[in-house]
Amino acid sequence: MSALRPENRALFRAAQADFEPSEADRERVEKALAMTLGTAVGASAGAVGTSAAAPAGAAHATASGVTAMNVSMATVAGVAGASAKGVVVGVGMGAVQWLSIVAVVAAVGGMGVVALRPAPAQPPPAVSASPAMAPVPLVSTHGPLTRVVAALPVTPAATNTPQPAPQASVPPAALPIAPHAPAGSSLPSTVALAETRVSQEARLLHDAQNAIRMGDTAMALRLLDEHARTFPHGVLEEEREAERALLTCGSGGGGREAGERFLRQYPDSPLVTRVRSACLAP
């Protein structure tokens, strides 16, 4: 295998350093992932994951707080005429780090925006000082954050909830997925972080899985259909179709066929094994 000339190899060596994410880059992505997945991924998250039951140890491990998950999340949803109302939810990450979610429902002319703003490290709220009252560790729960976001009233401008027929043919790229704060927004100091396409996709599938767990097959199918309409070729397309096949297999009728269709359509999918064993096992 012939190698590159030294001066060109050097280009790649230089880029290895230049292409590294900065601290700020990492922090941004970690916060976004924490919102999307409802799980902490920062440097201290591993420590929390393994020592959630031992607050003292976790406190020690996370004291450095490099990726302090102190996030103030202000969600402004347009609810015409509603008066501002604040909800504060504290989610524990060990005994030191806290994720405080401030969900504000305010009347702002029909526009929705999810803002994410790093907050200075804060001491844990008094209510949680005792380990006995320690809130749910973020790592082992499923998406307290996403659930808060999902539970908020949202306006058509802020959601991707597809309007039935007329919208069906709009390609995903054309959908208003990145709502911006209107000029003169009441939160001028917050950095608007629009809910990304992938987090909307993940939320739909996540909700569908919840519905499956609750035994609400009809609701799950509706959510999968919604995903299919809104993101026909989304990054989670394969996951959606696998979920659909598994759902059909679980509920009896047409399972084998659904499984075969999935295997034909996505022969290289990592989900093939799961679908095959659920749908095509003799």
């Binding site: 880029a15 290895q16 292409f19 590294e20 994410p21 880059d25 941004r28 992505v29 976004a32 992932l33 999307t36 997945l37 799980t39 991924v41 990304t196 396409r197 992938v198 987090s199 996709e201 993940a202 599938l205 990054v235 989670l236 996951e239 990592p270 989900l271």
Partner: peptide, 29 residues
Amino acid sequence: VWRAVRGLGVGQGAIDDVVQEVFVIAYRR
């Protein structure tokens, strides 16, 4: 992941999104 996404030419405005996508899919799979 970050390095590779940049090396593959994803523009500045989209790096965050693409890196996030990679890890969301990884998480699910």
